[in-house]
Design a binder for these strands. Structure first.
Lengths: 158, 158
DNA sequence: ATCAAAAAGGTCAAAGAAGGTCAAACTATA
DNA sequence: TATAGTTTGACCTTCTTTGACCTTTTTGAT
């Protein structure tokens, strides 16, 4: 079995045990699995990406960590589906349609919808290169949706 | 848990207990936490900066002290001020500090704070060119803040 | 009153401890 | 054999910890 899969397995187990939120040490894991630290990043990037329903947060420096959060199961398959269906580029019109739909079906509150639209509006993204904007929009959109879906997770020591 | 966070915690508790004003002894704390005195300065500089809404005063010599004060700010004036103070480029750390402060002072709800942070996180902005990100961040940040402030907020007048 | 020692606190830079990124080399598989 | 998926390593950025050295205030001896 590939080491990548072993690591992925380990992470999944940790997530399971910790009820959807796991705080891991990259260097520890690397030591444990006798692999290079960056392989942990590889596993996370390929198996625990936002598209697959995970949020990742990390801190460097002494006492650093990588925190993975799994989208809670009770959250609509719908949003997850939408998430999967957003490619890595999306135009303003599609965004509006999707957001309106999500709002109509109660996945998003009015405020959330507004904030998302504001964040990825042409105006807000203006400093960016014009042909980059759609990609940016897709990325921000996905991250925000995910964050909202994950919301009922208390936490944050800050 | 990091010692830095322990110290920050201690200070926050002191502030809470003393109703927003705490007078501490650097050397005492250093002894208590088994750390170098300058680490206390580090914690104060990184966690209790004026940006985050704290005032710091100190005296040297015999009977010296460090006095921290939590300052409360008027919501809208503050948001407006913050808005003005954001140039057309801002780094992630400053964002975090500002948002945390706005949240602490009740200008932003927790959800709003989270959404903003998500929208302009490094991860979300990743598709963009690295030296463009700060500018983008500033733009999105301002747009979102503005949207929130301009929102007809019924019943939040206090 | 004067001055030196002691008692605080301040500053800054270097070292250490994480995590991040990227591309090149390798491997498995269609 | 192309192609996609893994593995590795060199180099980067961020956050924390420590220590050497500096400044200000108080205190006590003369």
């Amino acid at each position: 079995m590939k080491i990548t899969d072993l690591i992925a397995c380990f992470i999944r187990e940790a997530l399971e045990k910790m009820d959807g939120v796991a705080e891991l040490s990259r260097s520890e894991m690397a030591k444990q699995f006798h692999c290079s630290p960056s392989q942990i990043n590889y596993v996370i990037a390929t198996r625990f990406s936002p598209e697959r329903g995970y949020l990742v947060e990390s801190r460097r420096g002494g006492g650093g960590y990588i925190r993975l959060m799994q989208v809670s199961n009770d959250c609509d398959a719908m949003a997850t589906h939408v998430l999967g269906s957003i490619g890595n580029s999306i135009d303003p019109l599609s965004v509006r349609a999707i957001v309106a739909n999500l709002e109509a079906t109660g996945v998003l509150t009015m405020e959330q919808a507004r904030m998302i639209e504001t964040a990825i509006s042409e105006a807000a993204l203006r400093p960016s290169d014009s042909n980059e904007r759609d990609a940016l929009r897709a990325s921000i959109f996905k991250h925000m949706l995910l964050q909202i879906i994950c919301l009922p997770k208390e936490g944050k020591t800050e």
